[in-house]
Simulated scan of single mutants.
Amino acid sequence: MLDALKVVTVVVVGVMVGVEFSVAFVMNRIFSALPEDSGQLGRAHGGRMLGAVMPFWYIGSLVLAGVWAVAGWPGQGAGLVVTAAVLLVLSVIMSILLLVPINNRSKAWTPENRPADWKEQMNRWDRFHYLRVAVIVAAFALLAAALV
């Protein structure tokens, strides 16, 4: 049962990392290259869509890592899992304090109602997101290392 939990945790966190990495390094670059207002509209739609799913994914990943840490304590790799769980906690805190407030504003923007500094706000979101991606990549790496 513990082995199944480990695999599910690594898969769930790994797919989350893949989605967030794609947002940071693929999707937002595509949106930035689109003509006129298409990029801003694409980001707003992505903010609505992913904003509805990601809280469950982040919290679910954290819960899975926490259960693994408790169930696997004091076994081999438990320290790695605990550290990964701490990093996932950090990613949730970063999300709530830094990214969600910007996302909540930007997901409702249209070319007609967006603020004058909308690009600066998107750049700030991107910088915070890059940092969050680094944190969850590190958590994923620790979870994967704990498997071996």
Rank of each mutant, 00 (worst) to 15 (best):
M1S: 13
L2C: 03
A4T: 15
L5K: 05
K6L: 11
T9R: 01
V12G: 09
V12H: 14
V13W: 11
V13A: 10
G14T: 01
V15D: 11
G18K: 01
F21P: 02
S22N: 13
V23E: 11
A24L: 06
A24M: 07
A24R: 05
F25M: 12
M27T: 15
R29G: 14
A33W: 03
P35C: 01
P35Y: 03
D37T: 06
S38K: 10
S38T: 14
L41Q: 13
L41K: 12
G42Y: 12
G42D: 03
R43L: 07
R43T: 05
G46W: 08
G46Y: 08
G47A: 07
M49S: 12
G51A: 02
A52K: 10
V53A: 14
V53T: 08
Y58I: 12
G60C: 02
L62E: 04
L64G: 04
A69Y: 09
V70K: 07
G72K: 07
W73D: 10
W73E: 10
W73G: 07
G75W: 01
G77K: 01
A78N: 15
A78S: 15
A78C: 13
G79Q: 05
V81E: 06
V82C: 10
V82T: 11
V82L: 15
T83N: 10
A84Q: 05
A85V: 06
V89L: 15
V89D: 05
L90N: 11
L90T: 12
S91W: 03
V92L: 13
I93L: 10
I96T: 09
L97F: 09
L98M: 13
L98F: 10
L99D: 08
V100K: 06
I102Q: 01
N103Q: 11
N103R: 04
R105N: 04
S106W: 02
S106F: 05
K107Y: 03
A108T: 06
A108G: 11
T110H: 03
P111M: 03
E112M: 00
P115C: 01
W118G: 02
M122V: 10
D126A: 13
D126T: 12
D126I: 08
R127D: 10
H129T: 02
L131W: 15
R132H: 04
V133C: 07
V135K: 08
V135L: 11
V135R: 09
V135F: 08
F140W: 15
A141C: 14
A144G: 03
A145I: 03
A146Y: 01
A146L: 00
